[in-house]
Amino acid sequence: MPSVKDLRERIRSLKNTQQITKAMKQVAAAKIRRAEAAQKQARPYADTLAEMLRDLMNAVSTVDHPFMKPGNASAPMGVILMTADKGLAGAFNSNVIRAGELFAREQKEVAWYTVGIKARNAVRRMGKPNHPTWVLNAPSKIDVARAVAKQVTDDFIGGKISGITMISSKLITMMVQRPETRQMVPIVADALRAKGDAGEAESHAPKGSVEFAPSPEFVLSRLLPKYLEFTIFSAMLETDAAFFAAQLLAMNNATDNAGKLIDELTIQMNNARQAAITKELLEIVGGAEALVNG
C-alpha cells in the first residue's frame, strides 16, 4: 500500500494537471466562438458564389475549362490533407490522417499537399519529407488558401496530378467532428447545378436573359478558380472551429477524469492515514497493558 506521503504527492500533481486542462478548456471555449464568427462572416460570400455559379452553369452548355475535364490519368491523385497545427484534442487529427491513409490505399499513387502541422508530420512519416505544405494557423488564412489553390491548380494543369481531392474535418455538431473526403477537381458540372438548386429554389432570371460581360464562358473561367480557392479557405475555417470543439471536449473529459482520480486517491489517502493512526493507538494500548500487567 502506498504511503500517505506518496498519495499526497500524487494528488497535488493531479490537481496541477486539472488546473491546466481546465484552463485549456476555457481557452478552447473562447476560441471556438471566434472561429465560428469567422465562419459566419464567410457565409455571405459562399452563398453568393454558389448562386452566381448556378446562374452561369445554367447559361452555358459546354464549358471549356481545364477544371471540367479529366486530368492526366497516369499522374498521381493530388490530395490536400488538412488538420490542425496542434494536438491535445482527442482523436481529432488522427481521424483525419487515418481517412487520408485509407483514401491513399485506394489510389494507385498519391501526391500530398498538407495544411496544418499535424498533417505535415504524418505525411513526412510516410516518407514524403518534401511535399508542399502550409500551416493552418497563419496570420491570413485566405492568403494560405490562395497559395494552396495556386499550387494544386498549376500541378493539375501541368499534368502532374490527375485530380484534386481534399480531406478535412467537418464540424457536424459541437460534440461530433468527422473527416470528410471530397473531390474538387475535375468538377462535376451536375453537382454544381444541383448545389445551386439546393441553395435557393427560385431562379432569378429565366435562362438566357442574364447579360454576361464579356461572356458566360469567360466569367465562369474566372469563377472556377475562385471557387476552389474559397472552398479551401472555408475548409480551413471549419477545421479551426472543429479543432476547438474537439479540444473543448477532450479537455472537459480530462478535467472530469482528473477529478475522479483525485477523489479516489483522497479516499485511499484517508484510509492509509486512518490505518496508521489505528496502528499507533494499538501499539500504545498494547504497551500500556504490558506495563500494567508487568
Binding site: 436573359s209 447579360e211 460581360a213 469567360f218 474566372r222
Partner: peptide, 8 residues
C-alpha cells in the same frame, strides 16, 4: 432597374 447582369 438594371437588366440582369453578371460580370468579372
Amino acid at each position: 432597374h438594371h437588366a440582369p447582369f453578371l460580370a468579372a
